[in-house]
Amino acid sequence: MPRTRLIRRRVRRALLALLAATALLLGAGLATAGPAAAAPSPSPDEGGTKQLRAALDAAARGHIEAKNRLDNSKRRQAALTGQLKQLDVRLVELTAQVGEVAAQSYRVGRLTAVSMLLASSSPNAFVKRAAELDVMAQRDSKRLRDLNEAKTEATQTKLALDAEVREQQKQLAVLARKKRDAEVALAKVSSGSGAGFGGGSASAKPAPRNPDGSWPSESCSVNDPTPADGCITPRTLHMLQQAQAAGYKRYVSCHRSGGDGEHPKGRACDFAAATSGFKDVSATGGDKAYGDRLATWAKNNANRLGIMYVIWYRQIWMPNTGWRSYSGGGSPAADHTNHVHISMY
């Protein structure tokens, strides 16, 4: 019997040692896996409704497009204004030249071909005066033609300037309308203006634009490098890379299959506030400060990167409303108190 008990104790110790080693190995595996392996995604709807997200998308998209048209019109107006100033200077010069011709004709009488040729004293003088007559006629004709062309160009430039003023008034009206649309949509989830957040720089490298300054139309065509494992647009990838280059390297997830909004289209990313991924609790302390800086960075670089709106910690930023309060339903995911949501144009 004593020998049997000894064998049992040895077997028990061996089993305990085996279990301890297994637990240690499992723990090391989880540690090396990092937050990407264990971090869950936020709620698929992330608060709000499909209608709200569609309204916010339309209001932000309309604002960005109208703002681009307005900026283009202002650039054209500036160029036309400079052109008109140059034309005014040329008109003064040409008018003075034509005035000299008129004054000379008044003083000595109108020079005609007959009068010049009759005054010739010899065949050589006749040929010389004939040549002079041709040169003077060409010179005076060119001055008058240049003057008339400059007047016509100045008139057309003034008409173009008037057209640009009307275009700007039109786009300002569109901007005002899109702002009202955004405010109407936000009224369902917002109780008023928000205070915004501190930190964040404005140093992102601009995303590529069309020659006229507008944003290229993009599809979900490049690989999503985040654990979401799907596709995103090239502009979304650029934003993600710029955010990481700025130091925002905690867990992030972009593409999401199913549902609505920008995630399935590859036009949105969720940046976790916590170092370990998406936690079902509101961020505090250093995690909250990290989210504050990231949200402000996104707002400051929105025009460079093509960002439509940013949602973080019960606030939403849109280019036509600024920071507004936001209530998505009460949970950390819906209220965006555990992650920063960035939607792209």
Rank of each mutant, 00 (worst) to 15 (best):
L6P: 00
A283E: 05
P42G: 15
M308L: 08
S327Y: 14
S343Y: 03
G286A: 12
R145I: 10
R8C: 01
H336D: 09
D229G: 08
M308K: 07
A59S: 15
W323G: 11
C254D: 10
N210D: 11
A245M: 07
R5N: 07
E149N: 04
C254E: 03
R69H: 15
T155N: 10
V310P: 11
A28T: 06
R76W: 04
D212W: 07
A176D: 11
D146R: 02
D292L: 01
S343R: 02
S221E: 06
D162S: 12
K188N: 09
L111D: 12
S327V: 12
A21H: 06
L15N: 09
G109N: 12
A20N: 05
A334K: 09
R250H: 06
R53T: 11
E153W: 00
D57R: 05
L25P: 04
S214E: 07
V340N: 09
S141P: 07
R5Y: 04
A245E: 09
K67H: 15
R61H: 15
L52M: 10
A20V: 04
P40M: 06
V127G: 08
N68E: 15
L186E: 10
L26V: 10
L144D: 13
A130C: 14
T32I: 01
A204W: 00
A96V: 05
T112E: 10
L161W: 04
L91Y: 10
